[in-house]
Design a protein around this nucleic acid. Structure first.
Length: 271
DNA sequence: ACTGGCTCCTGAGGGC
DNA sequence: TGCCCTCAGGAGCCAG
């Protein structure tokens, strides 16, 4: 379940293996992803050299001279660097083969991920252009959230999970950020003060940064074997803790469904 | 312009 | 031990 920290960790993990390398080919075992893998992609990629890797939201962008690969991990996707002779496991849907034998191998049991191709500026791509700001950038602050939320009756949790508002806040970190900010998840986004949004913006930043740091410690594992950058290991305050005592006040953590998603919060600490 | 609900997919976990 | 059911989730899409 990659959230932004996992994607960032993945990007940092694969970058040294890809940058400056030449693509020998693309091996597709199952192109039925969120969007079908473009059938002509292997021939387009052959011989291209990779001159840049970046991230926009949870999309990983791999730039070549001819165009840019747009990769998303969905919710169960992972990437790893393998040696050529390593036999594929179940759900290893494609390999980006590099000259020299190493491969970038995409694994995704649920196939919610994707691999797309654009020959224009990727920032203008239909999936990228409407995205909100990066939560770790300077423009993401109280003023932005406050202005953007006026008149909106949707719950604040739904609001911050909308990638058109801000990218990279998934279900787990949405609950954790709201807990840290002391805001009840079902409160209407438009009713929250600028001051409380200042705290929320800061909380989102802190939760994401802490998690990126943790991902950093498992970088080596990720590249070599597990592919499991570990937010499971980090201490969650509310997520999946229904009925358990709040770490701050001891009140039982509550759980509810919100927009098809599970939400957890402390009824005493969050108002 | 918003909002909420639906959808894709497979594996895990619970109940019996 | 095995079967069936439900649930989990990113995020685009669409109807209202």
């Amino acid at each position: 379940m990659p959230e932004l920290p996992e994607v960032e960790t993945t990007l940092r993990g694969i970058q040294p293996f890809l940058l400056g390398q030449t693509i020998e080919g693309l091996v597709v075992r199952d192109g039925r992803l969120r969007w079908p893998l473009p059938p002509d992609l292997p021939e387009r990629l052959r011989g291209q050299s990779i001159h840049g890797l970046s991230r926009r939201g949870k999309y990983i962008l791999i730039a070549t001279d001819a165009g840019t690969l747009i990769l998303h991990l969905g919710m169960s996707g992972s990437l790893r660097i393998t040696e050529a002779e390593l036999p594929p496991r179940k759900h290893d849907h494609y390999d980006l083969v590099l000259t020299g034998g190493k491969r970038l191998r995409f694994h995704d049991p649920r196939r919610f991920g994707c691999l797309l191709w654009t020959e224009s500026d990727p920032e203008l791509h239909a999936l990228i252009a409407p995205l909100g700001p990066e939560p770790l950038s300077a423009v993401f602050d109280a003023g932005y959230l406050h202005a953007r939320s006026r008149g909106r009756r949707a719950a604040v949790k739904t609001f911050i999970m909308d990638s058109h508002v801000v990218v990279g806040v998934g279900n787990i970190y949405a609950s954790e950020s709201l807990y840290r900010a002391g805001i009840a998840p079902q409160r209407a986004a438009g009713d929250i003060s600028r001051q409380r949004y200042a705290r929320l913006a800061e909380s989102i930043r802190e939760v994401l940064l802490a998690s990126i740091e943790q991902g950093g410690t498992t970088l080596r594992d990720f590249v070599n074997e597990s592919g499991n950058p570990g937010y499971f290991r980090q201490t969650l305050n509310v997520y999946d803790r229904a009925g358990q005592p709040c770490r701050a006040c001891g009140t039982a953590i509550e759980a509810a469904r919100q927009g098809q998603r599970s939400t957890f919060w402390c009824p005493r600490c969050q108002r």
